[in-house]
Simulated scan of single mutants.
Amino acid sequence: MQILENETQKKEEIAGNEIACNQCQKKPAEIFQVNGDYCIDCWQALTHTNA
């Protein structure tokens, strides 16, 4: 699957068997929770908002 980032027109490849992050939809999910699947960057932003 190809994902096109609107701001930079950058394409990222996500293999067919990988799950995209529910937050950014750009990176493959690495953390799987009941409330969603997240890449590491989005997970850190959601859980460590003061960092």
Rank of each mutant, 00 (worst) to 15 (best):
C39S: 06
E12Q: 02
G16F: 07
C24H: 13
Q44Y: 09
A20F: 05
D37V: 04
L46V: 04
Q33F: 01
A20I: 12
C24W: 10
Q9R: 13
W43I: 02
E12C: 01
G36Y: 07
Q33V: 04
E12V: 10
C39L: 05
D37M: 03
W43D: 09
I31A: 03
K11I: 15
T49E: 03
V34S: 05
E5A: 08
I19Y: 13
A29N: 03
C21E: 00
N6E: 15
A29K: 03
C39P: 04
Q33T: 01
N22H: 15
Q33G: 00
E13Q: 10
L4H: 08
W43Y: 15
Q2D: 13
K10P: 00
A20R: 15
I31Y: 02
I14T: 08
D41R: 11
I31M: 02
Q44E: 14
G36Q: 03
A45R: 15
I3P: 02
N50M: 04
Q44K: 13
P28T: 05
C39W: 05
G36D: 04
A20K: 15
C24E: 05
N35W: 06
A20Q: 14
C21P: 03
Q2F: 07
T49P: 02
T49S: 06
D41Y: 12
E5F: 09
K26L: 12
E12Y: 14
A20M: 08
K10F: 01
K11P: 00
C42M: 12
C42T: 11
V34L: 06
K27S: 03
K11G: 04
E7D: 14
I19Q: 14
Y38E: 01
C21K: 05
I3G: 07
K11Y: 06
N50C: 00
H48A: 05
C21I: 04
Q33M: 05
E7V: 08
A45V: 12
N6W: 00
D41P: 01
L46R: 11
F32P: 04
Q2W: 04
G16N: 14
I3S: 10
N6T: 15
N35G: 03
L4K: 12
G36K: 02
C24I: 10
E7F: 00
C24D: 12
C24S: 10
K10H: 07
Q2L: 13
Y38M: 03
W43A: 06
H48G: 00
G36P: 06
